[in-house]
Simulated scan of single mutants.
Amino acid sequence: MITRATLAAVGDVLIHSPVYKDASISKGKYDFNPMFNEVRKLTQEPDILVANQESMIGGTGLGLSSYPSFNSPQEIGDALKAAGVDVVTLANNHTLDRGEKAIHSALAYWDKLQMPYTGAFRSEEDASTIRTLTRNNITFAFLAYTYGTNGIPIPKGKAYLVNLINVDKIRADVEKAKKISDVIVVSMHWGTEYEPKPNQEQLQLAQKLADMGVHIVIGNHPHVLQPPAWVRGKDGNNTFVMYSLGNFLSAQERTERLIGGIGSVEVTKTVTGSNKTITLKNPTFIPTYNYYRNHRNFKIIPMSTIKSNDTLKNALQQLEKTKKHMALFIPDLAFR
C-alpha cells in the first residue's frame, strides 16, 4: 500500500505593534484574516501546514506589547487556523517575554481553537505528550526547540515552559516519537539573525538530527531566507532541512526581511507486508512578500503574482534573486 501527504511550513509570525494596530476593528478586538487573503489558497493546499508563532498570544487582558518583549492579540490564532495552519511551534527566543501568565493564556487559547502546539507547555504532563497528526494514513510527530530565551531565565523547576536545544533531550524525544509515528518533524529556532546562509552550528545540528532519523527539519529565527538542503543521515536516510523560512508576517524593514515563503515536501509511505518505508521527494518553495505601506495595509502576497513596482520595487528581479538563493543547495528545487 502506498499513501502520500504533503507537509508544508511557513516562517516567523511576529506580531509587531503596527501589525496588530492595523488589525484593530474596535477597542480590544482584532481581525488578521484580510492579511492572509492573497495567500490563503496556497496555505490551505498542503495536508499539513506548520507555522512558527513567534510572539505569545497572551491576549489583551495582559496588555499587548511589541519588540523587545512581545504579547499579541489572540485573534492571530483564529487567522492562522482560517488560513489552513494545522500546528504551531512556540519554542523561540520570545517564549518567556511576558512570563508564565502569557504562556498559560496563549496555550488555553490554542486549546480553545483545537490547534496543536509544541515547544512550550503548561506542565510536565503536557510536555511529555508528543503531538501527532495523521493524514492519508501517515502519522507525523512534531517537536520544537529554541537556542535560548533572550537571557530570561526559565523559572526553577519549570523547564517544561519552553524546550531548549539540548541534543540528549532531542534524541530522547525523537526515540519516543518513533514509537508512535511514521514521520518526525523537528522545528529548530536557531542560527544568526539576518544571515542568508546557515552557520556552522546549524549545519552540525542538522547533521545530528539526520543521524537521529529525523525526516524533516523546519528552521526559523534568522528572519531572512536560508536555502534548504538534503542532509544524509548515518543510516543513509535523507533529511529535508529548511534552514530558515524567513518572516511570514511581521513589521520588520528591508526587503530581505519581508520576503519569506512556504516550504513543502511530499512524503510517501510504502507498506509491504510488515515492512514500512518513508521517502521524501518534490521539495517546493513558494516565495511570499510581506507587504505594507506606512505601517498599514499589511498583507502576505505570493511573489509570482506581483506585477507592480508600487507593491515591490523590481519585483521580477527580486523573485529571480530569491529563487537563485533558495536553490543553492538543491538545484532542482521547484518553485511556484
Rank of each mutant, 00 (worst) to 15 (best):
T118N: 04
F285N: 00
N71Y: 04
L90E: 03
F32M: 03
R257H: 06
S123C: 11
L203Y: 04
F248N: 00
V174N: 11
L96F: 11
N309D: 15
T311N: 03
M56V: 13
E175C: 01
G219I: 01
K321W: 12
H325P: 08
E38H: 11
T146A: 13
R257E: 09
S250G: 06
S69E: 08
V39T: 04
R232Q: 14
K81E: 05
H104I: 14
L245M: 14
V271F: 06
I286V: 15
R131L: 07
T272H: 10
S264L: 06
Q226V: 01
L258D: 01
L319V: 09
K269N: 09
P18A: 12
L96Q: 11
S264I: 05
L312T: 02
V10Q: 01
K299P: 03
F140L: 12
F285E: 00
K179Y: 02
D211L: 04
V186F: 06
D168M: 09
N33M: 12
V39K: 05
Q204M: 11
A23S: 13
I103S: 11
D86A: 10
G63P: 09
K112D: 11
A83E: 06
Y147I: 07
G84D: 06
V183C: 03
A127V: 02
A210S: 15
S55P: 03
I2Q: 14
N309V: 07
H189E: 08
V167K: 13
H94I: 12
L164K: 15
N297H: 15
F285I: 05
L49C: 10
G260W: 00
Y109D: 00
I130M: 07
K269V: 08
G77S: 10
R40F: 01
V13R: 00
G151H: 11
L203W: 02
K178Q: 13
R257G: 03
V10I: 15
G63C: 07
T3Q: 13
I25S: 10
S128P: 01
T284Y: 10
D168H: 13
G157W: 12
S55K: 01
I286Q: 03
N150T: 12
D78I: 07
K299C: 04
M115F: 04
I152R: 13
N71T: 05
T279Y: 01
N136G: 06
L164R: 15
T134W: 06
D182L: 10
E124S: 11
Y30T: 04
I306R: 02
K178H: 08
A315T: 04
D173C: 10
Q53F: 03
I165T: 15
S304N: 14
P18T: 11
T311C: 04
Q53D: 04
W230G: 05
S26G: 13
I138N: 03
I103K: 09
N237H: 13
N282S: 14
V186K: 01
A9W: 00
G261E: 01
M56T: 09
Q317G: 11
N237C: 02
S244N: 05
E75F: 03
A51Y: 01
L280I: 09
L205E: 08
T139K: 12
K169M: 10
K276G: 01
N136S: 14
Q200D: 14
A315E: 08
Y291A: 07
D31R: 07
G11L: 04
S128Q: 14
K281M: 06
E125K: 15
L205G: 00
L42E: 13
K234N: 14
Y67A: 05
L14A: 08
T255R: 15
T146Y: 02
V174A: 12
L96D: 11
D310R: 14
L312P: 00
K81Q: 13
P46M: 08
